[in-house]
């Protein structure tokens, strides 16, 4: 796998040459060891991206933002969202976008790949959470 993408197999196949790093949260079991391993991998990829001046996209599951699939997956998803907002603040002056995409089980991987590509373009939005699902509507997300 391209070392600049840490994503599920379907998305990897759809993302042949992304113009920046992409990190997709992989569901973890509810152990701290699994959770901190996932977040540490995100830290390392994010730091490499910042050092290279590259845009960055995290992909999370909407159910995990709401805590529906267990504590481990929730800590990873919401941790990445907050990290993305902070990193967007740190890279805004350089015009480097950092964003998060929330999906659900029905999100087509081709659609996800298109949005990853859009959010990796320079001059686009930064610090945003883009939902490719309607599952967030009427729910408590911030």
């Amino acid at each position: 796998m391209n070392e600049r993408i840490r994503v599920g197999e379907d998305l990897a196949a759809a993302l042949s040459e992304p113009s920046g790093p992409v990190f997709q949260a992989i569901p973890t079991d509810d152990t701290w060891e699994a959770c901190v391993s996932e977040l540490t991998e995100a830290y390392e990829m994010s730091r490499r991206a910042v050092e290279a001046g590259e845009p960055l996209v995290y992909v999370v599951h909407n159910d995990d933002l709401l805590g529906r699939r267990g504590a481990g997956a929730a800590m990873v998803a919401t941790g990445l969202l907050s990290a993305a907002r902070t990193l967007a603040l740190e890279t805004a002056r350089e015009g480097i976008p950092v964003n998060v995409i929330a999906i659900d089980d029905e999100t087509a991987v081709e659609r996800l790949a298109i949005w990853v590509g859009r959010l990796l373009e320079s001059g686009g939005p930064t610090g945003e959470l883009v939902h490719l699902t309607a599952g967030h509507l009427g729910k408590a997300l911030a």
Partner: peptide, 10 residues
């Protein structure tokens, strides 16, 4: 942020 997710899950 992780604490917020943990709060929701628990």
């Amino acid at each position: 942020g992780g604490v917020v997710g943990l709060t929701r899950a628990m």
